[in-house]
């Protein structure tokens, strides 16, 4: 080919049709994938509230954990902030450790409650535990990114906040717990 042919080739390439319709409608598959990827189904107009909700939930957990850290004591030379250091919205391992520790303390404090209250607490712990396990499984199974991860972490923190509430009630109960 000559130089002229080169230019002809480029001209022809630039004139090629840019838009090619797919042979079938791909939207149903996309819609299903979006639904699968969104834990609470299709996001509604309020979905942008999640970052704020996550922050609020994190604040709740931090507040609970401050009490938690003070209640359990901290290592010599450390302070509350140090004890809370591992707690992070993006560090599931820290949250998992917190969950395990709080669950153990709740279990240890259950004997303070009357039998009826113990049953209620155990039932609620099971519900919270199931929710945490499910969120954990989704996060571990197919690590999501962006907003989905944020939403899942916020849900996890929400459940952890509930667990912290239960812990506080158990440890500081005067045997008049109503859950």
């Amino acid at each position: 080919m000559t130089t002229h042919d080169e230019q002809t080739l480029l001209d022809q390439a630039s004139r090629l049709r840019k838009d090619i319709p797919p042979e079938r409608d791909l939207w149903p598959g996309i819609e299903a994938a979006i639904a699968d990827a969104t834990p609470a189904g299709r996001r509604d107009p309020g979905r942008n509230r999640w970052p704020a909700a996550a922050a609020l939930a994190a604040t709740l957990v931090l507040a609970l954990l401050i009490g938690y850290g003070a209640g359990r004591g901290t290592p010599e030379g450390s302070n509350g902030a140090t004890a809370l250091q591992p707690v992070s919205l993006v560090e599931a391992a820290g949250l998992l450790e917190t969950r395990r520790t709080m669950a153990a303390e709740i279990e240890a404090g259950l004997h303070r409650l009357p039998p009826d209250a113990q049953a209620v607490v155990i039932e609620n712990l099971a519900t919270i535990g199931t929710a945490l396990d499910e969120i954990d499984a989704v996060l571990a199974e197919a690590p999501p990114s962006g907003l989905d991860r944020q939403v899942l972490m916020a849900l996890y923190v929400d459940q952890l906040a509930l667990l912290g509430s239960v812990r506080q009630l158990v440890l500081h109960s005067n045997q008049e717990i109503l859950l």
Binding site: L26, I30, R42
Partner: peptide, 18 residues
Amino acid sequence: GDGRAFERLYRQTVDAVY
């Protein structure tokens, strides 16, 4: 969060993406 709007967006752009 308007899913219908996103579907319209898809339908208007899919040929270029495909």
